[in-house]
Design a protein around this nucleic acid. Sequence first.
DNA 1: ACAGCCATGTAATCGGTTACATGATTGG
DNA 2: CCAATCATGTAACCGATTACATGGCTGT
Lengths: 183, 183
Amino acid sequence: MTRGRGRQLSELEGCVLGHLWKHGPSTAYAVRQELLVSPSSHWSASAGAIYPLLQRLELQRLVTAREATRGDRDASAYALTPLGTQQFLRWLGPPFESDVVSIAVDPLRTRVHFLGAMPPRRRTKYLQAAIHELKRHLGELSAFRRTGDAFDRLSLAGALRLTRARIAWLAQVQGALGRLESK
Amino acid sequence: MTRGRGRQLSELEGCVLGHLWKHGPSTAYAVRQELLVSPSSHWSASAGAIYPLLQRLELQRLVTAREATRGDRDASAYALTPLGTQQFLRWLGPPFESDVVSIAVDPLRTRVHFLGAMPPRRRTKYLQAAIHELKRHLGELSAFRRTGDAFDRLSLAGALRLTRARIAWLAQVQGALGRLESK
DNA sequence: ACAGCCATGTAATCGGTTACATGATTGG
DNA sequence: CCAATCATGTAACCGATTACATGGCTGT
């Protein structure tokens, strides 16, 4: 999927432009750091992703690079151009690409398709373990309750809701399989 | 990330092995068709993904290829080996890799971080549009209510729950931003 | 002064997507 | 019989990850 000229931005590209919009001109390193500490990004924010990405965005004139010598070292600080801002807003939507609204892939949901591959007792253990991990994850997420701005916290509220929904769903699966088994 | 020898399987590899477990020996085409009609896979199930993937799995001795001439045409039907079954069960877990339990990436959640980039009236429209799309998606998912086996339906129940949770969350965002604005 | 970390990248690799090629099968 | 579609792949490309390289900076 080429992204030359008018193409839709990828999720990671949108996030990076969003960072620049939110925090102003930044180096690639600053962008990476924020992605690394973010509670809910699935990217590793590896250098090999971010540095070339910003170079691509510069070629497309969505950002401009300024020489930002920090101490004695040369670096590039990137800033949104008007075109970049426009593309960022287009990425935000609406309209929404279909995979923005379609349900996110859930590895646990994928695995439930195949729960028939294990005996009932193992299934019970399995669901207990998954619920336990989800609750632990819920605790980790809660640690971010007081960080960021209002929008960051609303975003976190979404992550918490989704995690609680997954827990409730697995409880439903437990119940359904229990009934299935006792028939 | 190399997957030679004892490596953990990727999601797509796990799904393909799961298909073979569930439906018995299959051609690459059969695997593709099921992924294409599946209500909730984010893969395009492109030929360029599936055919090489099965060839890789064969090299790793997780599947065996049998000449399955259909009519006059040669094709390969792949079947799980005992090693493949073992690796499939290991992929199912537990233990769970951290990204199995950690929250799935949600493009709408990503975008909420940046809602401050638009004026309040546009935000209102934005959230209405997103909720509308999610409800439409909910309807599409519901069409699968009576398909598949018990596990497929439980999996679908998870997708429905997550979608409803996203709708409720966006309603919460609407309310919170309304209060924020009226202050 | 020098060990260890910070910051800025680059290179190799890998898996997935898009697009293409090709022959068999089927419908009108 | 010919067009359209089915079925089986292959090739080029692309973006992300891992691993590496390098040089400045910082604490002891």
